[in-house]
Design a protein around this nucleic acid. Structure first.
Lengths: 217, 217
DNA sequence: CGACGCCTTGAATTTAGTCAAAAGTAGTGG
DNA sequence: CCACTACTTTTGACTAAATTCAAGGCGTCG
């Protein structure tokens, strides 16, 4: 799929073209800091990136986890409102404002991504405000399963982030996250072979707990 | 907010052009329904619009309140994930997909708006997960004050939405919203002359309670 | 006036948070 | 390979906060 860099009218061509510029970063690499000037947007080629805000009282709100194909760092303001850091080794491309000006198709993609992230944010808000701690944790695990392309009833998922990261994403305390995982384990829904792996024993039940709309698949 | 979009003269021309097509709707008019096909985006010329999602268990999550100059209905999917309804009499313009194709500047504006709404959503998530009920209600009142262009220490704000609307926006019960308003009243921060008006007696203190970054202004 | 809808208040309950301690996991160096 | 240490996660007991359920008040409009 590698093509000459001249014709960039097709979106996929342009993404492919730019994708090859990706750089690999080890885990815990900061890609940009809260307050840094915005000089472009980012795309995840591989790995996981976490974006968070630090509040004045030194609390931390994790805005999201981004995986292959996701864009992040989208902002219309001059300065990034959040910090982006790799959770695992990750290959990341930066799209400069110059790149974006080059391709109408890329602009369209970015708009679609922004809209899609808006939708995701609203869905998250619903989870955060209308769901119990148990439901939040189950929802998080379902999200991870989907992102890792898992299907079926029983499978392993990787959990590269810490319990504290999960807590800061779901707006719970680390103790509550731990308790809910234990509860799911005691209920036979999951297994916890080690701290960075979760074995889903009963995905159907997990989805019911998470109140997924489509309990199928 | 979206400072990058301010300097594009062409954009304002186009907005002005389209703005004149706005139509006035009485309060409680549904502009689109959850599930309707997306045939364009909307801009508020005047009045207030509320956007919400109905969940399968008939709970309601209010995604946002939109006022003059705000865009809403931004979605990259085929169907609207939410319902938009006027809270007060409102003048609304619909931008068709055809309109948007016409103007590069408008596309840019829409992207900036989407990014700005993403930022707003993340800030809201922080409020919802890290703040107490009292802080949430205070934050809501500060937001209303800012939207209504209020300044100084003491002034009236209109409250066209119901207590239930506020509760569904902040993820609280209606009783808690009521109790927190009472608490603010008892603390001398606000007055409640009638159900649709709040008199802010001490905006400084309100902002402190809301943990506003800039307690100035 | 009376009825309805919306808002407020009160009491009991539930949920998640906090504080404290124990258990488990890496990682290091002898 | 084991012991030591530092860190993360889990568990337990208690506390604080918000929800729920129930009743009462207030306005509005017929």
């Amino acid at each position: 799929m590698n093509n000459r860099s001249q014709n960039i009218s097709q979106q996929d061509d342009y993404i492919d073209h730019v994708k090859s510029r990706g750089r690999v970063h080890p885990e815990q690499t900061v890609l940009y800091h809260q307050g840094d000037g915005v000089s472009g947007f980012y795309r995840v080629n591989s790995g996981i990136v976490m974006v968070y805000r630090l509040l004045p009282d030194s609390q931390r709100q994790i805005s999201g986890f981004y995986t292959q194909g996701d864009f992040f760092g989208l902002s219309s303001s001059d300065a990034h409102p959040d910090t982006a850091v790799t959770v695992s080794t990750a290959n990341i491309v930066m799209l400069t404002l110059h790149d974006i000006r080059q391709s109408i198709a890329l602009q369209k993609t970015l708009f679609d991504m922004a809209c899609s992230q808006l939708d995701t944010a609203q869905t998250l808000i619903t989870t955060l405000t209308k769901r119990s701690a148990a439901e939040k944790v189950a929802t998080f695990l379902v999200m991870l399963s989907q992102r890792q392309g898992q299907q079926g009833v029983s499978f392993d998922i990787r959990l590269p982030m810490s319990r504290q990261d999960i807590a800061d994403y779901l707006g719970l305390s680390i103790e509550t996250v731990s308790r809910m995982l234990t509860k799911l384990k005691d209920g036979g829904v999951i297994h916890l072979p080690n701290r960075n792996t979760i074995h889903i024993c009963d995905y159907i039940r997990l989805k019911i707990i998470a109140r997924e709309k489509s309990v199928q698949n």
